[in-house]
């Protein structure tokens, strides 16, 4: 059936789909690349090396890496728990892990503010101990963790299930302790999927906007990440800067796409 001559309906489908993708995906990226580089490289370079820009990159890196580390530890632990153990409430846990996919980032930000904000019981307790959560890095890390929460679990889970438990049991009969089984058998077996999950999380974390916009307070030069900085520049009619920063994030996204394509487990999607 595939080898049918290319028929009229098939051409129709191609034209419609390609036009749709062209206008929705390809052209916007082409236009922003063009706008960014239309006056050469130096304005771009200048825009990305201002102290505010540098600071935004630094904050973004700190927040994203922290959130990814947390989510990686959580993700592996949760995946093992869900795949390898049977316990009451397992299905609920499984469902709750997906919750962040369906919750609006702004709602996430608001919810965190209501618990950890300065005027709340929890927030003021931390405040008395010199730790600010909201309008500060810890809150941004928690918010980012929230939105990227399911990625590692869902990347690792199926692979963990597929490799089964026998290798771990074999290691146990050979004398390996639970820790040795984890580091020598389980972790190496899931490393591909784990790397994939980490790339997904990193891409999501670097780009998080809504939740971080709420919990950071968007304090320029203090809690502003690159995505927030883009909006600031745009609102202040600094288009060169906004386009340059956007393009830097586009490049990161493309890198993540390419990396994920290589890491994709069993990824015969061609």
């Amino acid at each position: 059936m595939t080898r049918n001559r290319t028929s009229a309906p098939r051409w129709g489908l191609r034209v419609v789909v390609l036009a749709y993708l062209m206008f929705l995906l390809v052209l916007p990226v082409v236009v922003i690349l063009y706008r960014t580089f239309q006056h050469g490289l130096s304005p771009v370079f200048d825009a990305l090396t201002t102290s505010d820009a540098q600071h935004a990159y630094k904050i973004t890196a700190i927040v994203a890496v922290s959130a990814v580390v947390l989510n990686t530890v959580f993700g592996v632990a949760a995946a093992i728990l869900l795949v390898r153990h049977r316990f009451p409430g397992r299905r609920i846990l499984d469902a709750v892990i997906d919750l962040p996919i369906a919750v609006s980032p702004v709602v996430v930000g608001l919810a965190l503010t209501l618990v950890y904000g300065r005027n709340t019981a929890v927030g003021s307790w931390f405040g008395r101990h010199g730790i600010n959560i909201i309008f500060s890095l810890p809150g941004m890390v928690i918010a980012t963790s929230f939105v990227a929460l399911p990625l590692v679990v869902r990347a690792v889970g199926p692979v963990l299930e597929e490799i089964g438990e026998e290798q771990e049991q074999a290691a146990a009969t050979l004398g390996a302790s639970a820790f040795q089984r984890f580091t020598r058998i389980t972790l190496p077996s899931i490393r591909g999927a784990l790397a994939y999950g980490v790339v997904l999380s990193l891409a999501r974390s670097l780009g998080e906007f809504g939740a971080v916009a709420v919990v950071s307070g968007r304090l320029l030069g203090k809690t502003e990440t690159v995505p927030l900085y883009v909006l600031d520049l745009y609102n202040n009619f600094n288009q060169t800067g906004a386009y340059a920063a956007s393009t830097s994030l586009v490049l990161v996204a493309v890198a993540a796409l390419v990396a994920s394509r290589f890491l994709r487990p069993r990824g015969a999607m061609t």
């Binding site: 074999a170 146990a172 050979l174």
Partner: peptide, 27 residues
């Protein structure tokens, strides 16, 4: 199991897929 001193051979081998034969045996 790790303290019983038993050797166990599984029907489907339970080979450590990420290790060479040598490292499997040496585990």
């Amino acid at each position: 199991p790790q303290r019983r001193g038993v050797g166990f051979v599984f029907q489907h081998y339970a080979a450590f897929k990420h290790m060479t034969v040598e490292r499997n045996v040496a585990f």
